[in-house]
Design a binder for these strands. Structure first.
Length: 269
DNA sequence: ATGCTAACCTGCGCGC
DNA sequence: TGCGCGCAGGTTAGCA
């Protein structure tokens, strides 16, 4: 999936096309997603889109009577198509809109979700989440406070949505490289100064990725139907065994949990 | 509480 | 144009 910048890019791409539109029909061809698509979703038929926003990696579409919440999982994407375009194999959901266009959800791996909630503040998916990484609330100070006495590796720590949302595997690797912090270090043993550096680079990396429309990944198509990504410089992600961009060493690849970590033994201590 | 693993599912690239 | 394996952007349930 899309990491946070990709969700933000989707939000920005889709918003102008669906805002103020009435959803006339919801077509669910495959309800078996990360969580089954509930029949409650049909409530949005006949309702108008009042706003589009993002919280963590969830895309929130506000209607008069509640919210539809999309999650793109690992391989989900949303785009606008014409009514006459036949759905493909993994095009699981369509919203047919009053302007004659169709918002179409595509997700080969089906780790995504479409949920209906009356009030996002009450949603169990949202109410335990930490701050947005690009908000003022997220800071080195916060990372430092939350990590005291924590033995979890720093990479695992920054990918924990209760600490800060939206830092996925790609950007966790990139941020730790830019901060010069080894991903395996216990979060609780990192100094305040280093945490401040880390918070700064997380903001920079995510901000830059959003600016560039996200990283090029094979499953994503932008909301307007054009490829949504511009190539972004990734220093370490996907480069295990290659030369470190900053020194003569080779990038080392390890597994942390079920995820691949790449780092430089010389530059990250 | 904390922390790790497995699970959800399909597709792709690699080695044979 | 085969076959099996491991891996891929996320999140949560369940177990020690």
């Amino acid at each position: 999936m899309p990491e946070l910048p990709e969700v933000e890019t989707t939000k920005r791409g889709v918003e102008p096309h669906i805002l103020d539109q009435t959803i006339e029909t919801v077509v669910v061809r495959q309800p078996k997603l990360r969580w089954p698509v509930s029949d409650e979703i049909y409530q949005l038929e006949g309702q108008k889109v009042l706003s589009v926003s993002r919280r963590a990696k969830y895309l929130l579409v506000e209607f008069e009577q509640g919210y539809a919440m999309w999650h793109l999982g690992m391989s989900g994407s949303l785009r606008l198509v014409e009514k006459h375009e036949a759905p493909g194999k993994h095009d699981h959901i369509d919203w047919l809109m009053s302007n004659g266009k169709v918002l179409r959800y595509h997700d080969p791996r089906r780790f995504g979700a479409l949920l209906w909630v009356e009030n996002p503040a009450d949603s169990e998916h949202l109410n335990h989440l930490g701050p947005e990484p690009l908000s003022e609330e997220f800071s080195g100070e916060l990372l430092y406070q939350k990590s005291r006495n924590k033995k979890v590796p720093i990479k695992t720590f920054i990918m924990d949505g209760k600490v800060v949302v939206g830092v996925g595997n790609i950007y966790a690797n990139e941020s730790l490289f830019l901060a010069g912090i080894r991903p395996t270090i216990a979060a609780g043993r990192i100094s305040k100064a280093r945490m401040e550096k880390l918070a700064v680079v997380i903001k920079q990396v995510l901000g830059k990725a959003i600016e560039q429309g996200g990283t090029t990944l094979r499953d994503f198509v932008g909301g307007d139907g054009k490829p949504g990504y511009f190539a972004q410089q990734l220093n370490v992600y996907g480069r295990g065994g290659e030369k470190c961009p900053a020194c003569d060493g080779l990038l080392k690849e390890i597994r942390q949990g079920q995820r691949t970590t790449v780092f430089c033994k010389t530059c990250q201590t």
